[in-house]
């Protein structure tokens, strides 16, 4: 009698845990999820101290996620971002802040991020944080990433590669696909600059 009670209690606990995992998996943002990312404020670390999205209120913010070990996708996109920003007038450039957030905080220190992003465009800011902070920001913007272990012992990171454009009031306004040419990035920025 006592044993059956124990078993049913154990079963209930297992069911609860399984249900919890199921719920979590259902709520985990998947790359296919139809819901558009909400965006929103965040605070992460730069080499020159913490930086928050709200520090740039009044400016248009271009946000991109990647990592410095990335051999092709990130450098290519950052080069296109640099070309887009360089093509704008100095007055327009002054109203835009480009931000690169690492999805590899274990390897990308704030100092490393700073030296890296400046190569592509002098005004870019590189941000890192602890894995939980990075995950929270990524979730808010619909960024997905996961480690892929290599036989050589190292790892690469699969990641979504959208460019996020945030309006002057801190709201996510546009998402540009991977491979958007510099001219398209510049046009989207100009359009956002025209909005109050």
């Amino acid at each position: 009698m006592k044993i059956t009670r124990w078993i049913s209690a154990a079963l209930a606990v297992i069911l609860l845990i399984a249900g919890g995992f199921y719920w979590l998996s259902m709520n985990h943002p998947s790359p296919n999820s139809a819901g558009a990312p909400q965006g929103g404020d965040f605070t992460l670390q730069s080499a020159d101290g913490p930086r928050s999205l709200h520090d740039f209120r009044g400016k248009v913010v271009l946000l991109y996620f990647g990592y410095t070990f990335c051999p092709d996708i990130c450098p290519t996109t950052l080069t296109l971002i640099g070309q887009a920003l360089s093509s704008l007038s100095p007055a327009q450039q002054a109203q835009i802040q480009g931000i690169f957030v690492t999805v590899d905080p274990a390897r990308d220190t704030a100092q490393k991020m700073k030296a890296y992003v400046r190569y592509f465009y002098p005004g870019l800011i590189g941000l890192t944080g602890n894995p939980q902070e990075i995950a929270a920001v990524a979730r808010r913007y619909g960024v997905v990433y996961r480690k892929h272990k290599e036989k050589s012992g190292g790892y690469l990171i699969d990641h979504s590669a959208f460019i996020y454009l945030i309006g002057r009031h801190g709201k996510l306004r546009r998402t540009l696909p991977h491979g958007a040419p510099a001219a398209a990035i510049a046009a989207a920025l100009r359009q956002l600059l025209q909005q109050p």
Binding site: S30, P31, N32, P71, D72, I73, V144, Y145, R146, H148, E150, K151, L156, D158, H159, S160, A161, F162, H178
Partner: peptide, 9 residues
């Protein structure tokens, strides 16, 4: 794949 860029050997 599903919006994710994957690099594979």
């Amino acid at each position: 794949v599903n919006g994710m860029m994957e690099m594979r050997q």
